[in-house]
């Protein structure tokens, strides 16, 4: 039953992706992208990864759509089609797709107990996090305690992104003020 649900959701994902390719109105693209994220979130729920699903729904479907919308309010709402270099684009996409499909042949099956992800540190987290960290949500224990250093890096990345956006957008504002003077 779960397999049928996953296949159904994955085909909806594929349909959404194909629809995005043929859309020219950026508003529709953003909305479909939001739907894509929401579908991924549902797939994560089916795979029992609720924390990831939560993040995908909040960040992917929620805030990034809003940020895209406010960005397109600045840039304009229609995609300008360029007819050149179609062959190069086709070759690049085909090669990347072929490489990705080739790479999946090496991947372990979902839930395979011998997969590297299960045999490395996951067992320690599952068995010991209750006595070592002592909070019920194992994901938070890994994210904030075992992998605290990584999360610090993530927060630094988010902060750097803000600095970059402000540098790009606010400098323009000050230049205009200078011009007015």
């Amino acid at each position: 039953m779960e397999d049928i649900i996953i296949i159904f959701l994955l085909s909806l994902l594929a349909i959404t992706a194909i629809a995005i390719i043929f859309m020219r109105n950026m508003l529709s693209v953003i909305m479909l992208g939001s739907i894509y994220s929401l579908l991924s979130a549902v797939i994560f729920v089916v795979l029992d990864a609720v924390d990831v699903a939560f993040t995908e729904a909040a960040v992917g479907a929620g805030i990034s759509s809003v940020l895209f919308l406010s960005a397109f309010a600045v840039t304009g709402k229609r995609q300008v089609l360029k007819q050149k270099n179609k062959l190069i684009a086709f070759v690049t996409v085909s090669l990347t797709a072929a490489a990705l499909i080739y790479a999946t042949s090496d991947m372990p099956y979902v839930g395979d107990p011998n997969a590297p992800v299960q045999t490395h540190v996951a067992a320690r987290y599952i068995e010991q996090s209750g006595s070592e960290v002592g909070i019920p949500n194992m994901v938070t224990a890994v994210l904030a305690s075992y992998r605290g250093f990584d999360t610090l890096g993530e927060v630094a990345v988010v902060f750097t992104a803000m600095i970059a956006v402000l540098l790009l957008l606010l400098r323009r504002e000050e230049e205009e003020l200078d011009r007015e003077k």
Binding site: I135, E173, E176
Partner: peptide, 28 residues
């Protein structure tokens, strides 16, 4: 430790998202 660290993450993420939104809406 987890409480304070998560609070730090929450503060940064909230204000970064708002700043980026403000930056876009202020941009003319």
């Amino acid at each position: 430790g987890i409480f304070w660290v998560e609070l730090g993450v929450g503060l940064t993420v909230t204000s970064v998202m708002l700043s980026i939104f403000y930056a876009f809406t202020n941009f003319k």
